[in-house]
Write a protein that binds this DNA or RNA. Sequence first.
DNA 1: GTCTATAATTTGATAGAC
DNA 2: GTCTATCAAATTATAGAC
Lengths: 175, 175
Amino acid sequence: MDSATQILDIAERMMRREGYNAISFRDIAGEMGIKSASLHYHFPKKVNLGEALVARYHKNFHDTLGARTSGLSDPSAKVQIFIDLHRSAIQDSGLICLCAVFGAEAKGLPETIGQGVKAFFNANIAWLSQMYRDANVPNPEQKAKASIAMLEGALIVASVSGDISVFEAAAKFAA
Amino acid sequence: MDSATQILDIAERMMRREGYNAISFRDIAGEMGIKSASLHYHFPKKVNLGEALVARYHKNFHDTLGARTSGLSDPSAKVQIFIDLHRSAIQDSGLICLCAVFGAEAKGLPETIGQGVKAFFNANIAWLSQMYRDANVPNPEQKAKASIAMLEGALIVASVSGDISVFEAAAKFAA
DNA sequence: GTCTATAATTTGATAGAC
DNA sequence: GTCTATCAAATTATAGAC
């Protein structure tokens, strides 16, 4: 695996646990076994790393979503895949959505990062709206907004409480 | 107003915008017009300030909730007050819930702060469960967990998107 | 790509005067 | 309660060797 990818992997895991400002270049480099100065070769400034994290997270999420739903025609089944993608994060590794964490800190982050987070939420709302519309759910856009809010919030509350049942309660509504 | 209260007010507003780690003693002192060293007289260490913030936030929220619902008997009306309390934060000042922000960063914060955040969520879930139970809503606890997750998440998504309609969509479900 | 070395700044925190 | 003075450590970032 190339270094840039390794940096992104470690940074994403750490920041999804502790936030953007809590993690330093030294923390990331330390776990890689290299020096922090070397990180600047791949990401000149911290903001570049943050932007790359959000962009990659957004792309990975929707690539995975597309791949897993490509064979399906039932919109309700696709929504379930969407929910499962959120569940697997907290279930497999106890991690919150990167954009939920950055979203909570957004007003103190470089503006480009906030814009990336906003784009992620908007894309998810648009995707989910279409699914609900296809499933003839009333007020599909409103339901999509509520579902996104619930899934993101559920990850945070479940993580803090150490209680996955909070997520399951949310998942039941979004379905 | 005494200095400790003033410090808490400023720190709360700043941290609800940018997070715990983004705000320094100098930031807070600067806005108060005093020196950062003076803050240590009121809160010896930063963790003491963080703990006090969560404790006060928790107490203020439930005191206000108690005061505004004391004359009411209809549980649905009480739930509406609960939702309004969340709405007023983002509507009046664009602020996210302190515990949503700290919850997102929790794994990187002192453990006592994480425990305070957890206690806040648990208290809210318990309170809301009782309201739904009184209103004969099916699965009151599950609905309470989903509603808390949704309201907290909606504050974050609405804040990042600059779109209050996300909160209104969530409010409609929780009602 | 990674290293050493280093600079500039920020941060949490303390000691002691007033 | 607030100040000045100060500190040790951490942080982002750069320059230049290998």
